[in-house]
């Protein structure tokens, strides 16, 4: 119960911070994607099943959150894949920072490719080779930079709500 509330609160905060602050920073090239990092953070602690469900819900919320203007469900699909992939690394004992950073890089790349791939299938003319290249580079780099700050924070928050059996 507590964990559920915590999850909803963190995801909503991440989505709003992304839309209201991060996206208007005017960083060169692109932005980090905070909701994606949150999904990765949760999945790394709680495993692939939790990861895929949380990824789907977070992605769906990001699909609906107003300034978004693409076919509904694309981010849901992309983030579900991300949650699953990150969840697979759950069992690794004593992850090093490098593993976390590697997972984040991989997850960011996967998200962009799934989002762009489905976009290509439904004929979104925003998806061009250069746009994908730019997005891939920017998202992966910024996410990796932000990961060491965000992911451990979420992991420790989740562990604190560990149901004390």
């Amino acid at each position: 119960m507590r964990r559920g509330l915590l999850t909803v609160a963190i995801v909503m905060t991440a989505l709003l911070v992304q839309a209201v602050i991060i996206n208007r920073l005017g960083l060169p090239g692109g932005w980090p994607d905070l909701p994606l990092l949150v999904v990765v953070g949760f999945a790394l602690v709680l495993g692939p099943t939790y990861g895929v469900i949380l990824g789907f819900c977070t992605g769906l919320a990001a699909d609906v959150l107003p300034p978004a203007d693409h076919t509904l469900g694309r981010l849901a699909l992309a983030f579900a894949v991300v949650g699953y992939l990150a969840g697979l690394v759950e069992d690794v004992e004593e992850r090093s920072v490098l593993t976390t950073v590697g997972v984040v890089a991989l997850a960011s790349g996967a998200a962009v490719i799934v989002f762009a791939g489905v976009g290509g299938l439904v004929g979104d003319n925003r998806i061009t080779a250069t746009a994908v290249g730019h997005s891939l580079a920017a998202t992966v780099i910024y996410d990796v930079v932000l990961a060491p700050f965000v992911v451990p924070l979420i992991a420790s928050a989740v562990r604190r709500t560990e149901p004390a059996a």
């Binding site: 692109g30 300034p67 978004a68 203007d69 997005s135």
Partner: peptide
Amino acid sequence: HVIAYGSSLGFESTAE
């Protein structure tokens, strides 16, 4: 006032 910007992984340029 613009209150939020869209990005969707950097593909969109929309605002709220």
